[in-house]
């Protein structure tokens, strides 16, 4: 029993260590030329296009649900004119970045892991090394950067579409006065709230990129192994995103953002 626990701890630590090493290597290489502009662009198009429909649907429905849900609560206290502020703040600070990240972990992270995992089990990663090319530089860096850059951008989309959804649900469905709604909603979201959401998105982007690539590069055992790596990638990313969200929120609270 103790032995199993010990072995689990050691393998868990080794796992954390490997992820840290990959993160450090990736960050180091991201800052250093030569940059593979072509690869980065290809990945960004990939990530962006894959995610846009998902992001639009997530944003719209989250905004609407949030509005309807808040209406019932606030209505009881006759505070329903505050809906706009509540919806927009929740979206900008919390739900926008988190939901975008969770969706991307499923959509983009899974695709990256599957692709790199397939390359790993068919010896394409070995071949890359034999051709004197560093797989981290060639494969991981562009994917990591694409996630890092696009997650804040996509978060802005989600938040914006969510706000629109919230407005439509409140004004068109719940019959809240449009001028009222806007007067409160627009004033409530300050630049530091947007910044808060963007900082979160940046970290979530890093998590998705690193975990997806790590799981892909360490896949083993044929098609089944790639499947296992892909599931593992999504689950790990999602959990890390939620855990990180808590700590980042706490940290940002301390520095008052």
């Amino acid at each position: 029993m103790l032995e199993i626990l010990g072995r689990r701890t050691i393998s868990g630590l080794a796992y954390l260590g490997e992820i840290s090493i990959l993160s450090v290597q990736t960050l180091g290489l991201s800052l250093k030329p030569p940059w593979k502009g072509k690869n980065l662009l290809a990945e960004m198009v990939n990530v962006g296009l894959l995610s846009l429909p998902v992001v639009i649907i997530t944003g719209a429905f989250t905004g609407m649900v949030l509005a309807v849900q808040s209406y019932y609560v606030l209505h009881k206290m006759t505070l329903e004119t505050g809906i706009g502020g509540l919806v927009d703040l929740s979206l900008a600070r919390e739900l926008g970045p988190v939901l975008t990240a969770l969706m991307l972990a499923g959509r983009v992270g899974a695709a990256m892991t599957a692709q790199l995992g397939t390359m790993k089990v068919t010896e394409q990663i070995d071949a890359l090394q034999s051709l004197a090319v560093n797989p981290v530089q060639y494969l991981v860096v562009p994917r990591f950067l694409a996630c890092l850059i696009l997650l804040p951008i996509l978060t802005v989309y989600t938040v914006f579409i969510g706000m629109l959804g919230g407005y439509i649900a409140s004004v068109k469905m719940m019959g809240i006065n449009a001028t009222f709604y806007l007067s409160i909603a627009v004033g409530k979201v300050a630049p530091h709230d947007i910044l808060n959401g963007l900082i979160k998105a940046l970290f979530f982007g890093m998590i998705i990129g690193i975990i997806a690539c790590y799981k892909g590069l360490t896949a083993k055992g044929g098609a089944e192994g790639v499947g296992r790596a892909t599931t593992g990638s999504v689950v790990t990313s999602c959990i890390l995103i939620l855990v990180a969200d808590f700590f980042i929120t706490l940290a940002l609270k301390i520095v008052n953002i």
Partner: peptide
């Protein structure tokens, strides 16, 4: 490589 390992 034994299986070719071409970049697909």
């Amino acid at each position: 490589f034994q299986g070719g390992a071409l970049f697909d």
